[in-house]
Design a protein around this nucleic acid. Sequence first.
DNA 1: ACCCTTATTGTGAATTACTCAGAATAAGTG
DNA 2: CACTTATTCTGAGTAATTCACAATAAGGGT
Lengths: 171, 171
Amino acid sequence: MMTGTRTEGGSGATAEHEWEQQLHSHDRRVTKQRLAVLAAVARSQHSTAEAITAAIRAELPSITVQSIYVVLADLTRLGMLRRIEPPNSPARYETRTGDNHHHAICTSCGRIEDVDCAVGHAPCLTPELDAGATIGHIIIADVLYQGTCSACAATANEPLTVKPDEVGPSH
Amino acid sequence: MMTGTRTEGGSGATAEHEWEQQLHSHDRRVTKQRLAVLAAVARSQHSTAEAITAAIRAELPSITVQSIYVVLADLTRLGMLRRIEPPNSPARYETRTGDNHHHAICTSCGRIEDVDCAVGHAPCLTPELDAGATIGHIIIADVLYQGTCSACAATANEPLTVKPDEVGPSH
DNA sequence: ACCCTTATTGTGAATTACTCAGAATAAGTG
DNA sequence: CACTTATTCTGAGTAATTCACAATAAGGGT
């Protein structure tokens, strides 16, 4: 198993096996829906539930949006997916989990990019919370950078003319 | 004008005059609805549209939720309010604008606090965007710290048991 | 002080993103 | 292969927000 050629290009089958193992280790059954969701998100990072549904329906036409939501929520809970909620956009999902990375979003076209923390992990986790702060135990720090991507800067688009989700997934 | 005593405690009338001036300078009419929204947000930072509506109705019972939304959106566009969108919560609004400050949210009770950037303004604005990034012109960097506040840590609440908006506004 | 223009608010319906309850299906186990 | 139960599907429901259009009122002109 997993020797020889594969039907599809990319990192398809390799990742698929890892996903199956991870699902098993979380006491989850391996279903084509779950694998399809993982594959769709992997193929198109930062995509919305709607985009994921559309992508999956190409090969699994009977899948419903509700199932997508259930699967996405569950996989996120397991840590196999990460959910991000950009302003003025439905939630988006990505397969890059576990590392502490942030996001940059173009306020003009909605493009989203991964951004590694500038100085490792620590700096964003030690703000001056001492000053009258009651929230002491910081677990995660999410940074959302907003600006304009070079494409939009070139086209001189006005900010926020296009809604983020009218544009396809990023990367 | 603005001398002597004021009817209400706090920074009521002073702020009100500033608001009127700001509204005028933005070619907006000074309406009691707008002033009421500004006052409600000022009084209770990080509150939701629903909470703002409830607060305002105490003295302006005929106001509608839709108007609140319109006013909030407009004042946010003008920069007189700032909108924050915490995960698993409706949008929240605050009067502290213009400065680059961030937020810490308690994942247990939903309490939100302002957090000043640890090293002034610059550090969060210069991530390593060079590495293959197309989003070059960063305008703002929002940092969202998530953790547990001391109260929740003491009560040993499980994270996310309570939805953020089941709790009153913070501060 | 009053009128008139038009921004603003109110009314009512619609939309988006998502969730829930229960029936049908299929993954994995013996 | 059968059986148990997680998973998915069906269909309805909800929360947050937006839209279109009618009613109202702010502020400038006279």
